[in-house]
Design a protein around this nucleic acid. Structure first.
Length: 459
RNA sequence: GCGUCAUUGGUGAAGUGGUUAACACGCUAGUUUGUGGCACUAGUACGCAAGAGUUCGAUUCUCUUAUGACGCCCCA
């Protein structure tokens, strides 16, 4: 048997519906923030990631899916979304668009050659957003608020925003130097990995798990102490805007982020759910003012965020968030003989075009088996075709909840179903107890007391 | 790249170096001459991830490979 590739997943059935639902929430929220959807290729020139993401990062050095195509081009499957968006921004000269800044979002698969574990796969789906062309601290706050609101709209409650600032290049360099100077004399007190990190990426020592309780680490210099005055002002403005937007956050000086291109604001959004495992960061992002220029575009300040959909799905599960997905059908059409079957074929076609969710029998089950199947599909109504009825131009239709059965004229069928099914929706109050009616459990009323989908409306 | 544990039918799983690999769910059919969801009965694995080895004999022991779960590095 041919198996799927390591670290890849087949998403289907109920889970696939959850994924689709998440996509619709993202689309809806991004529309409100006025971000445009952007699709860039899944593979790019290898050089893009080497220059963009950083030569020294693991993501490029050992986790990338590199290959050569038949034309000898060096290709890499994208490990993250920002580099492609920036390439596209430059190549399509979006910096020339009078409509600045450019606000875009993406949602697609990324590839990293690494060992799978909880919340980590080789093929992963990320959605992300970028604002290109503004250095305004308001955009930093907006990105964070957009991310938080997507999570909130999904129904997640246990999330935490960790915020930090790396400052401008000067601050960053100063800090890095101070950090190395500080750790050098204590090198023997650090774990093996940290010794290596001191050379490669000293900032990462700060979120070492082994040394987390180490006094040396606790007393290490903090990024914030090394910010230039300008960087500090900037960071304070970001915080001020977040407060105005009523976004809860925690300053966490240990957030450093993995990719080389970040400066100033960096943040991570964590799921605070029991049982999430070690990879509980739902998403993260920050400012990358140097990247566009580094990739041969004009100096362009940018800020962005990305989040793994797989982890969101997991968070929704662990928080037991009720996901509003349709799991029932309007009508199941049953038949026994060939003549009835033909009519079933006609009727399904007719009713589907009229807008109903209709299914029928395809495997030759007995009538009994068809009833079971109708239940499995959660059919609201069942239609049992009968040659005699059909000769009279009539059809039997049964409410699968109340078990009431009626014989109605074929001509009236669409009208009948329409009436029945709409009434039913109205009877179907949302489980939040707000007393209002809405399909898919999504309440549209601000005064609703339910915990789902509308925190941003002030409950 | 490193580590720990795992891999039995459509599903959940029990189990043993040796004739027919439990049990449950599911599924299909019948009891019920075209109206089910309960009940009863029957059927439902070319066989215990793949390959090699040890053995008179392996699903059960060893090794290799693959995949999965979790962790490390790193990272969303």
């Amino acid at each position: 048997m041919i198996q799927r590739q390591k670290g890849c997943n087949d998403i289907y059935g109920r889970e696939a519906k959850v994924w689709k639902y998440i996509d619709t929430v993202i689309d809806a929220m991004m529309e409100k923030y006025n971000y445009n959807y952007i699709r860039t290729p899944i593979f790019e020139a290898t050089e893009l990631f080497h220059r963009g993401v950083g030569e020294t990062t693991d993501i490029v050095t050992k986790e990338s899916y590199d290959f050569e195509d038949k034309g000898g081009r060096k290709i890499t499957l994208r490990p993250e979304g920002t580099a492609g968006v920036v390439r596209s921004f430059i190549e399509n000269k979006m910096y020339g668009d009078p409509n600045q800044p450019v606000k875009v979002y993406y949602n697609g698969t990324m590839y990293r050659y690494e060992r799978p574990q909880s919340g980590r796969d080789r093929e992963l789906t990320q959605f992300g957003m970028e604002i290109l062309g503004s250095d305004d601290p308001l955009t930093d706050a907006e990105i964070i608020s957009a991310a938080v609101n997507v999570f909130k709209m999904l129904g997640l409650k246990e999330i935490k925003v960790n915020l930090n600032s790396l400052g401008d290049n000067e601050s960053r360099d100063n800090y890095r130097k101070a950090l190395v100077d500080y750790f050098k004399p204590h090198i023997n007190e650090l774990c093996e990995d940290c010794v290596e990190r001191l050379e490669k990426n000293p900032l990462r020592i700060l979120d070492c798990k082994v040394d987390a309780e180490n006094e040396v680490l606790k007393n290490a210099p903090k990024t914030l102490d090394y910010l230039t005055e300008e960087s500090r002002d900037r960071f304070e403005k970001v915080q001020e805007y977040l407060e105005i937007m009523q976004i809860d956050y925690t300053i966490n000086p240990n957030i450093v982020r993995g990719l080389d291109y970040y400066n100033h604001t960096v943040f991570e959004i964590e799921a605070k759910v029991e049982g999430f495992g070690s990879n509980n960061v739902l998403g993260g992002g920050g400012r990358y003012n140097g990247l566009v220029n580094q990739l041969d575009g004009p100096e362009t300040p940018c800020v962005g965020f990305a989040s793994g959909i797989g982890r969101l799905v997991k968070a929704l599960e662990l928080e037991e968030v009720k996901v509003p997905i349709v799991e029932d059908i309007d009508l199941f059409i049953m038949y026994v003989n060939e003549e009835e079957k033909k009519y079933a074929a006609y009727l399904t076609q007719e009713l589907r075009l009229a807008g109903f969710i209709v299914d029928t029998e395809y495997t030759g089950r007995s009538l009994k088996g068809q009833f079971k199947q109708a239940d499995r599909l959660n059919a609201k109504y069942i239609c049992v075709l009968n040659s005699e009825d059909l000769d009279n131009n009539e059809v039997k239709i049964k409410n699968n909840k109340t078990k009431e059965e009626e014989v109605i004229s074929l001509d009236a069928l669409i009208y009948y179903l329409d009436e029945k099914l709409t009434t039913e929706v109205e009877d179907d109050e949302c489980d939040c107890g707000c007393g209002h009616h809405h399909e898919h459990g999504e309440c549209e009323h601000g005064e609703c007391k339910c915990s789902h989908h509308h925190e941003e409306k002030g409950e």
